[in-house]
Amino acid sequence: MKFPRPLPFRQAVTAAQARTLLPTNMRTAEFAQLVADGHAAVLERARFSAGVRSVQHLDVIDSGINDLVAGVTDLATQRLAVKNFLRGTGYMAPESERGTLTDLASDVRINLQLSVGVQQAQGYGWWKQGQQADILDAFPAQEFLRVEDRMVPRQDWPQRWNAARSATVTDGATDSSSGRMVALKNHPIWVALSRFGTPYEPFDYNSGMGVEDVARKDAMNLGLLGRDTQIFPQDRPFNEDLQATVDVRADRLRQLLQETGLGRFDRQGVFIYTREGGN
């Protein structure tokens, strides 16, 4: 039986709405450095885009993402909303940049901003739902595979997989030379594999790669776990007593973290993420 009915993707909606707007002049490489330094969790709680310093601009993007996740609008309509906002500000990219990723009004840039935000919320939602104890028991693993074709797909995913496996734990994850990239759902390989430092889709910009559940019997046949191995659910609560050690290599990054308003450094130099309006 099929029927049309709008139903919120609760976990995805929560994930989208929980993000704090983060105006910044940081570039993509600096965000990547923050992830490499172990601060992915801070970025996971923020809505940002490289070089977007306007809160109002971020708010338009944020609203678009929230409405897309809620299933009440489409990408073209939200892209138009962003373009209309930028037209209203008189924004125009330098001629040499028009139509490129650095042009805030280009299709490619706006599509990326909206789609990554939506995919992160939906990826979190699927991951979170999969952490339910009975589901985790029946589907303790997931497979990393291509879910969308690309004209020029990245060829280095097997190497990246093996590098992440070697850098974390080899047990509980297959070697990519086996022909499959499968790991237990709460294996650290997922965070290590992800450009964004998160264990859920997307794992890189426009990658076309995703994850699908693997049943326990299949995971056992791959040697990842035994029949009685218990996998414990994980949680990634938003705005909940997050702390990050300050191994921020550049003073500039430290200053930017401070300026985000997402938290503060304590006397020991640990960055404490704070609830909005809290201590």
Binding site: F9, G71, L75, V118, Q119, Q122, W126, G130, Q132
Partner: peptide
């Protein structure tokens, strides 16, 4: 391509 079906895939809920 807009990958409409890729978008639909990600919107499947528990």
């Amino acid at each position: 391509r807009t990958h409409f079906w890729g978008q639909v895939r990600r919107s499947v809920q528990q």
